[in-house]
């Protein structure tokens, strides 16, 4: 009986987690294509176009807190016994980073370039929460540069 409940939870989490993940990826792709012509780089200020005069610089940031589902957590738990690539977590982390970067870029709609982009992540689980699903926060920040018109 316990096993049946477990399997049911497992299946539900697998299906809903999959739906949420696919729709998030679609959303990310759409916005990334929209922003394709707006550069953001991790170089410092020497990448600013020297022929133009800088009107304004400011710090822009994007932040996301994201959680994995129960299904991913179970697979990752089992997988960590054998070691190796944890395929279940890769899309999760990828979504988090891209979403944070998109939010950062979207928060500077009028800038010409974002330089010195950095990414930080924080594990939201306490160290002893062994069985908790993964919860991370990804924070992307950079300097938005606007040239004089």
């Amino acid at each position: 009986m316990d096993l049946l409940i477990l399997l049911a939870l497992f299946a539900v989490a697998c299906i809903t987690g999959g739906i949420i993940e696919r729709s998030h990826f679609r959303h990310i792709k759409k916005r990334e294509i929209e922003l394709l012509d707006r550069p953001y780089i991790s170089f410092e200020n020497n990448s600013v176009d020297p022929s133009r005069k800088v009107a304004q610089t400011r710090l822009v940031s994007g932040n996301i807190a994201i959680g994995g589902d129960y299904f991913k957590n179970v697979i990752a738990g089992l997988k960590s016994f054998f070691g190796g690539r944890i395929g279940a977590y890769e899309p999760l982390l990828d979504r988090a980073r891209r979403e944070a970067l998109l939010r950062m870029r979207e928060s500077a709609p009028d800038s010409d370039i974002i330089i010195n982009v950095r990414i930080d992540s924080v594990n939201l689980n306490s160290a002893n929460a062994r069985k908790a699903p993964p919860r991370i926060s990804v924070f992307a920040y950079g300097t938005a540069v606007t040239y004089e018109k």
Partner: peptide
């Protein structure tokens, strides 16, 4: 555009197949 379409940072393997493999191994 190619990178946005074909994401290299996340594996292509569907999670249920990974789950099956891991459980079978166990």
């Amino acid at each position: 555009l190619e990178l946005i379409e074909n994401n290299v940072n996340a594996g292509k393997e569907p999670p249920w197949r990974e789950a099956l493999k891991v459980t079978a191994g166990f």
